[in-house]
Simulated scan of single mutants.
Amino acid sequence: MEWKESHLDLILVPTGFILMMCYHLGLWYKVRTQPFTTIIGINTSGRRLWVSSIIKDIDKKNILAVQTLRNAIMGSTLMATTSILISCGLAAILSSTYSIKKPLNDSVFGAHGEFMLSLKYVSILTIFLFSFLCHSLSIRFINQVNVLINTPQEPMSPVTPKYLSELFEKGCILNTVGNRLFYTAVPLLLWIFGPVLVFLCYLSLLPLLYNLDFVSCNAHNKNNTTKVEANKGIVVGSENFV
């Protein structure tokens, strides 16, 4: 009888979670092998160029640099605050003496036992806590960039554009990881109402993330064509000059 009650939880929820993990493994592979077909790869290249451009003209762009980094910190702070508030709410529910499963027994599918209910809340709480940790570390790295980007660029200074780019990239990667953990944990909140909603939410989330993470083939080919034509123009101009 216990298996009949929990078989949907043991099948649908892990299946949806594995689909999400497989998607992100494929995204990571694309970022490593073909970065300019993904938004993450293009943004990474743009951030490196941004740091180099800011440092070259820091006297005129110091306010712009501080404001941009402050906006990035505010975004990470918002996500970290949201994650820790949800975690506190879940911890309060777990420590409460009120049994929340009583009103839901007759309205949802899946198991309703004490063990399964604890597993649901602990799983959701763990992912949100890791999301909070990633966003907190992201704020730390971006704060370091915010301080060091205005330091004088001396010949023997250890604060180089490459070092600042690496710090900024670490902060942005941690922010991205924290966001992805948050996106993974939100569908699990629906696990309280049954595993079917979790699976359907994961299925609807995958095409949405795909459209947000990958550049369309037409735009990518158009960019490559533009670069080739620009390079040809430079070569022809050089030949005419000679």
Rank of each mutant, 00 (worst) to 15 (best):
P152D: 01
Q153E: 15
Y23W: 13
R180T: 13
V242H: 08
N221Y: 12
L164A: 03
W3F: 15
T126S: 11
S83I: 07
S95H: 15
N105E: 15
L212M: 12
G110Y: 01
G237H: 10
E154C: 13
V108C: 12
L117R: 10
V228K: 13
N71T: 11
A111I: 03
L174G: 01
L8K: 10
N175A: 13
N43H: 13
N223Q: 06
R32W: 06
Y23A: 02
W191E: 04
I73N: 00
K61L: 07
F36V: 07
S165E: 11
L94W: 06
V242L: 13
C172Y: 15
F214E: 00
I86F: 03
V108G: 05
E114T: 15
T15F: 08
E2W: 15
L167P: 01
V228Y: 11
V242S: 13
G113K: 03
N62G: 09
W50T: 03
L209F: 04
Y202M: 05
S99Q: 15
S238A: 06
C22W: 08
F109W: 09
I40R: 02
T97Q: 10
L148I: 04
V122N: 00
Q67K: 14
H7D: 03
S45H: 14
R180P: 06
I58R: 00
L69F: 05
K30E: 05
L208C: 09
L25I: 15
T151F: 14
